[in-house]
Amino acid sequence: MGKAIVITSGKGGVGKTTTSANIGTALALMGKRVCLMDLDIGLRNLDVVLGLDNRIIYDIVDVAEGRAKLPQALVKDKRFDDKLYLLPAAQNTDKTALQPDQVKEIVDELKPEYDYVLIDCPAGIEQGFMNAVAGADAAIVVTTPEISAVRDADRVVGLLEQHPLTEAPRLLINRIRLNMMQDGSMMDIDEITHHLGIELLGIIVDDDAVISTSNQGEPIVMQTENQASQGYRNVARRLEGQTVPLMKLEPQEEDGFWHKVSSWFHRG
C-alpha cells in the first residue's frame, strides 16, 4: 500500500508544481512507482513541466464522472519505464467540478498500485485545497523565504492541524537565494522553520536551471550535478526514511573560484 502525499502552500507561485514533478521524478529514479495527480483544475501545468502535455487523452474529471476508467486516464512517462505516471487535471472546467469524496476514491484506488501518490494542490484554501487534502496521508508545505509565502504557509498549517492527516505536515523551503540569506535581507531557514513549528523536510536553492529545464519539459532532478537537483533528491531520500543531513549552503562554484582568485591578490 502506497502513501498519498499532498504538496501544498496556500500562496501561488512558490513552486508546488515544480516540487511535485521533481520529487516524483526523484522517487522514480530511486526505483519507486509514483503517480502524480494534478488537482489544479482549469490551470493545469504539471503535465507541461513533465513534458507530457501532448499525451493527455482523459483527465481526472472524466474519471470522477465515469467517462473514463482510471487506467485510461493515466499518462505514462516513457523515460522511467513503468515507474512514473501522471493523472492530469481537466482544463475546460474549474475546481468545483470535483468533490472531496470523489478525489479520495481515486486516491484510494491508486494507492495499492503505487508506492507514492503525489497530489499537486492548487493555490488557495478553497474547494481545490479541500479536494487535494481529502485523500492524503501526509502533506508537504512548500514555502519560499518571503514573508507573504510564510504567512500563507502558516495559514495552511493551521488548516491541516484542524483536519489532521495521518502524518504531521512537513516543510520544504524553496527558492533559497544564498547571497540574500547571508547578508540577512531574506528570512533564514532556522527562522522560518522555528516560526512555522513543523519539521523541515528539505531546502532547495534558487537556480536558473530549474526554470530552463521545466521549459524543456524535463525536471531538474535529471541533472545530477545541480544544487537544486540535489536538494530534491535529498527530499526524496528523506521521504524514503533515510537520514540525510541538510545540504550545506555554500555560494556557487563560480563565486568560490573568483573569490579564491581575488584572495590571491589580497594576500600580497
Binding site: 500563507d152 502558516d154 495559514r155 493551521g158 488548516l159 492541524e161 516560526h195 513549528g197
Partner: peptide, 22 residues
C-alpha cells in the same frame, strides 16, 4: 496560526504563541 481565531470565556492565562494574523 494566521487566520485562526480562538474564542474563550472568562479569564485566560495564555502560554502559547499567536502568529501574525491569529
Amino acid at each position: 496560526r494566521n487566520g485562526q481565531e480562538v474564542a474563550m470565556q472568562g479569564d485566560v492565562l495564555f502560554l502559547g504563541t499567536i502568529h501574525e494574523g491569529g
